[in-house]
């Protein structure tokens, strides 16, 4: 992230260390992850030790310290999705793309993430691909949805 842009974000939040979480969210919103250099600069900008920023960034599951893929596949692992077989969907993506949940393929095409419920339980098991919700999934349907990515 450009220094100037970072300074703008920090200024938007009144240069207030209590707004650290919101600042990190803004950075991730724009960069898709939290770049190391940006966090080091943020520490200097805000006068907050890097250790505290790093703790926050690794404590909350919505942050990623690694660049994420062009496509993001999120499998909901809420209870309703779990009892309807969601873990098998995670297994399937892990197997087909040779990555573990939380990882990105070597070609940066796809990141597999899991989430603990997005509150769309009626549609479970649910998979979100690039922000689009796909409900009532099973391994066969997921194969079709992700099929197009494999060809890319």
């Amino acid at each position: 992230m450009e220094s100037k842009r970072l300074q703008e974000i920090v200024a938007d939040h009144g240069k207030d260390p209590a707004q650290l979480l919101a600042i990190l969210q803004d950075i991730q919103q724009e960069e898709n992850y939290l770049p190391k250099e940006t966090l080091k600069e943020l520490a200097r900008e805000l006068g907050v030790p890097l250790a505290r920023i790093y703790s926050l960034a690794t404590f909350f599951s919505s942050f990623s310290l690694e660049p994420r893929g062009k496509h993001i596949c999120t499998v909901c692992l809420g209870t309703a999705c779990h009892v309807r077989g969601a873990p098998r969907l995670v297994d399937q993506v892990e197997r087909d793309f040779a990555i573990k949940a939380g990882e990105t393929t070597a070609d940066r095409q796809l990141t597999l993430e899991t989430v603990n419920c997005v509150g769309a339980c009626a549609l479970g098991p649910l998979v979100i691909l690039d922000g689009e919700y796909h409900g009532n999934m099973n391994t066969a349907k997921l194969g079709r949805v992700l099929g197009s990515l494999k060809k890319e």
């Binding site: 030790p49 890097l50 690794t58």
Partner: peptide
């Protein structure tokens, strides 16, 4: 008065580290 180190992660994966488990520059 430095705060050069801190926990990373949470739950069973919590660990005490220098940021990025690299040199604690502070």
């Amino acid at each position: 008065g430095v705060e050069a180190i801190g926990f990373s992660g949470r739950g069973a994966g919590k660990r005490m580290v220098a940021p990025y488990d690299e040199t604690a520059e502070d």
